[in-house]
């Protein structure tokens, strides 16, 4: 009989080590295996988190390491929550979150529904549709600045072609009222395929014979859609919303490349604002408090959402 990997490993273990291992309980061996992971996790995740929480109660500035660090209680939190600029960025983020998810779910589900129909070449179409998702956000941000260019931009040309508006009369990323939409459009273009893929997985998980049963039960296509397709895809859809929500709450690279938070601060999302406070103004304590607030917000929203998701799944 050929020897198993465990037997071979046992043979090459030096006798001294083997003797020592033999004395260990299963539990001890388990601890030996998980300890490195726990140490790394503590070092790069848990410790910084606790350190950040501590810094958020101080006036520490990382560019002035010689200044005495003063404990200032909740002053940072107070300043952030009463600052109108914070609420501006929160609003910009909310706008960005809501509309990107809205469009991505709507278009993503519609695309998935169409792709799921059996037609020739739907695999090829899936590949083409998924392409934007594979690009680097920095690249996407960069080339969309060209597409949005009023004189030579393809986007402006297309809008003018369909509406007759002069293409040079508007600038998507230069205009205060259009800029928030410019980032919504790009993010939707880039990430709708992701929502589509998840919806497609959901649609493919519904067996044909359920539709056949519904057909025999005399349910119209419309009723089949609302009583079978939607409820059965809903958990997948909610998962897609969760992923996109968390991702877009911390959206940084794409928007920085595209608008840099401007014009003014109309597209300055919370993560961009945070980066400015922390690494341009060097208000480390203040930025830490800001980070804690964002963390609690995302964590809170996500846990409420996951509860809802589980309820939908259990239904």
């Amino acid at each position: 009989m050929p020897k198993s990997a465990i037997e071979r490993a046992a043979e090459v273990t030096p006798p001294a080590v083997a003797r020592r291992i033999k004395g260990l309980s299963d539990r001890a061996i388990a601890w030996i295996f998980v300890t490195p992971t726990i140490v790394i996790l503590l070092a790069i995740n848990i410790f910084p988190l606790i350190w950040t929480i501590w810094l958020s109660f101080t006036n520490f500035r990382v560019n002035r390491p010689n200044n005495a660090v003063e404990f200032i209680g909740l002053r940072n939190y107070e300043r952030i929550l009463t600052d109108p600029d914070t609420w501006m960025t929160m609003q910009a983020t909310a706008h960005f979150l809501f509309w990107t998810i809205f469009f991505q779910v709507l278009i993503g589900f519609a695309l998935a529904y169409l792709i799921n129909k059996k037609f020739k070449g739907n695999d090829m179409w899936t590949t083409i549709i998924v392409l934007p998702m594979m690009l680097s956000p920095a690249v996407v941000g960069n080339f969309w600045t060209f597409l949005y260019q009023p004189q030579i931009g393809f986007f402006n040309y297309v809008v003018s072609f369909f509406t007759g508006v002069d293409p040079t009369s508007f600038s998507m990323i230069g205009d205060v009222s259009l800029a928030p939409w410019s980032i919504v459009i790009v993010d939707t273009w880039m990430w709708t395929p992701f929502v589509m893929l998840i919806c497609l997985a959901g649609l493919r998980s519904i067996p044909d014979n359920i539709y056949e049963a519904a057909e025999c039960d005399r349910a119209s296509k419309w009723r089949q859609f609302w009583t079978i397709t939607i409820p059965m895809v809903l958990p997948f859809l909610m998962l897609a919303i969760l992923f996109r929500g968390i991702e877009n709450f911390k959206m940084f690279d794409l928007v920085v490349q595209l608008t840099g938070g401007g014009p003014g601060s109309t597209t300055e999302l919370t993560s961009i604002n945070l980066k400015r406070e922390a690494f341009e103004k060097w208000r480390t304590g203040f930025a830490s408090a800001y980070a804690v607030i964002l963390f609690v917000t995302v964590f809170g929203l996500a846990s409420i959402y996951v509860k809802a998701l589980n309820r939908v799944k259990a239904r």
Binding site: P207, N209, A213, A214, I228
Partner: peptide
């Protein structure tokens, strides 16, 4: 149906 085809 042989494979039940209930609405899960």
């Amino acid at each position: 149906f042989q494979q039940y085809s209930l609405y899960p």
